[in-house]
Simulated assay, not measured.
Amino acid sequence: MGSASKNSRTSVATQKFFCSCGGEVVMKTLFESGKLKNVAECTKCKRTERRPKDFK
C-alpha cells in the first residue's frame, strides 16, 4: 500500500507579522560591508528590527 511522503502531508502556512503602529512587517535583504543582512521592516513607520518577532 503506497502512502504519501511526510513532506507532502505538511501544510504550508505563512505567518504575517504586524507592528504596533498597525503596519505590516516585511523581510528585506541588505548588502552592507560585503555581507548580506536580513532585516524586518515595518511598511508604515519604517522601523527596522533584526527579526519580525522583535516588533512585539
Rank of each mutant, 00 (worst) to 15 (best):
G23L: 02
S20Y: 00
T43S: 04
E24Y: 00
C21D: 14
P52W: 02
G23K: 00
S33K: 15
R50L: 10
V26H: 06
L36S: 04
S33M: 09
S11M: 13
T14Y: 08
S3H: 13
T48C: 08
F31W: 06
P52V: 13
G2V: 11
F55P: 02
S8Q: 15
N38Y: 06
R50W: 03
T29L: 10
T10P: 00
F18M: 14
A40F: 08
L30G: 00
G23N: 08
K37L: 15
T48Y: 00
V12K: 09
K53I: 09
M1S: 14
K35T: 12
S8V: 07
A13L: 12
F17D: 01
S5A: 08
V25S: 07
S8A: 12
C21Y: 07
R9L: 15
D54N: 12
A13S: 14
E41T: 11
F18D: 10
R47H: 13
M27S: 09
F55E: 01
R50T: 11
C19E: 02
V25A: 00
K53G: 04
E24I: 10
K46M: 04
C21G: 13
T10Q: 14
S11H: 12
S20L: 10
S5C: 07
F17G: 00
S33F: 05
F55A: 03
E24Q: 11
K46C: 01
S11L: 12
E24M: 15
V39Q: 11
T43C: 08
E49P: 01
L36H: 05
T29K: 05
F17M: 05
T14N: 06
C45G: 08
C45A: 11
K53V: 06
E49Q: 14
M1Q: 07
K37C: 13
G23R: 06
S20Q: 14
C42E: 00
R9N: 11
N38Q: 14
F31S: 12
A13I: 15
S11D: 09
E41M: 12
N7F: 06
R51D: 05
P52I: 09
T10W: 08
G23D: 09
N38G: 02
K56R: 10
R51T: 11
A4H: 08
K37P: 01
C19W: 05
C19F: 06
G2H: 07
S3L: 10
E32W: 05
K53L: 10
G34L: 07
E24D: 03
A40Y: 03
F17Q: 01
Q15K: 12
K6F: 07
T43Q: 05
N38L: 13
T29V: 12
K53Y: 03
V26A: 00
T14H: 11
R9T: 14
K56G: 03
S5R: 10
K28N: 02
